[in-house]
Amino acid sequence: MKDLKKFNIPFVGLKQGDHVFEYDIDNTFFEAFNFDEFHSSNIHINLHFVKKSTLLELSFQAKGSVNVDCDVSLESFDQEIEGTFSLIIKFGPEYNDDNDEILIIPHEEYQINVAQFIYELIVLSIPSKKVHPKVLDGTMNSEALERLKELQIDEDSPSEKEEKIDPRWDKLKGLIRE
């Protein structure tokens, strides 16, 4: 995790008030987490850091794109991502991260590493189903989509089930119409 030292924020030396930290994320960041689902990434993180006397307020904003594979066509494309995350850091006797929005760190801590929060923000900003924009607008040409179109059930033509209706049911349908 030595690659993630630039994500350490030594808050003890900071004056009370607002501070801004900016990070540019690429695939080397994700390699530190052994995450390899992105072919490439270009994400800008803006961290608004507010130091108060008893707590720290962190507000993360992520904006950029990651190159991923489409879940339908398996073609790679750039998925635009945008996300926000807010965190309050309080001081207590021991480390406690049971709450997603409040982190308690020991009183003797002098810095915080925000890499894990940035990682989670980015990964959770990716949609669970990644679909290429050309698939959505119908302009994608790929072998997988052509095969899916061949195997698609034609809903306009009557199915075999409808054609083999028992004639006794026809008599009952006549009762409903009358």
Score class of each variant (00 low, 15 high):
Met1Ala: 09
Lys2Leu: 05
Lys2Val: 04
Phe7Leu: 09
Phe7Thr: 03
Asn8Ser: 11
Asn8Asp: 15
Asn8Glu: 11
Asn8Met: 04
Asn8Val: 03
Ile9Glu: 07
Val12Arg: 07
Gln16Phe: 09
Gln16Asp: 10
Gln16Trp: 14
Gly17Arg: 06
Gly17Ile: 12
His19Lys: 13
His19Ser: 10
Val20Ser: 12
Glu22Cys: 08
Asp26Glu: 10
Asn27Phe: 00
Phe33Asp: 00
Phe33Asn: 02
Phe35Arg: 06
Asp36Val: 04
Phe38Asn: 00
Phe38Lys: 06
Asn42Gln: 09
Asn46Phe: 02
Leu47Thr: 04
Leu47Asn: 02
Leu47Ile: 11
Phe49Ser: 03
Phe49Pro: 04
Thr54Met: 11
Leu56Cys: 08
Glu57Lys: 15
Leu58Lys: 02
Ser59Glu: 10
Ser59Gln: 13
Phe60Ile: 05
Phe60Gly: 09
Gln61Asp: 06
Lys63Asp: 07
Asn67Phe: 07
Asp71Tyr: 07
Asp71Thr: 11
Val72Trp: 01
Phe77Leu: 11
Gln79Gly: 00
Glu82His: 14
Thr84Gly: 13
Ser86Gln: 10
Ser86Ala: 07
Leu87Cys: 01
Lys90Thr: 01
Phe91Ala: 15
Pro93Arg: 02
Asn99Asp: 15
Asn99Lys: 14
Glu101Pro: 07
Ile102Ala: 08
Ile102Met: 02
Leu103Lys: 10
Ile104His: 09
Ile105Val: 14
Pro106Ala: 15
His107Val: 14
Glu109Ile: 03
Glu109Ala: 08
Gln111Lys: 12
Ala115Thr: 00
Gln116Asn: 11
Phe117Glu: 15
Tyr119Val: 00
Val123Arg: 04
Val123Asp: 11
Val123Asn: 07
Ile126Phe: 02
Ser128Lys: 14
Ser128Met: 04
Lys130Glu: 00
Lys130Tyr: 05
Val131Ala: 09
Val131Gln: 09
Pro133Asp: 05
Val135Gly: 02
Thr139Gly: 11
Asn141Ser: 15
Ser142Met: 05
Glu143Asp: 13
Arg147Cys: 08
Lys149Asp: 12
Lys149Ala: 10
Glu150Gly: 14
Glu150Arg: 11
Gln152Thr: 00
Ile153Glu: 14
Asp154Pro: 03
Asp154Phe: 09
Glu155Asp: 13
Pro158Phe: 12
Lys161Glu: 15
Glu162Lys: 13
Glu162Ser: 13
Glu162Asp: 14
Lys164Tyr: 10
Ile165Pro: 00
Asp166Ala: 06
Arg168Thr: 00
Trp169Tyr: 06
Asp170Gln: 15
Asp170Asn: 09
Leu172Cys: 06
Lys173Ala: 11
Leu175Cys: 07
Arg177Pro: 00
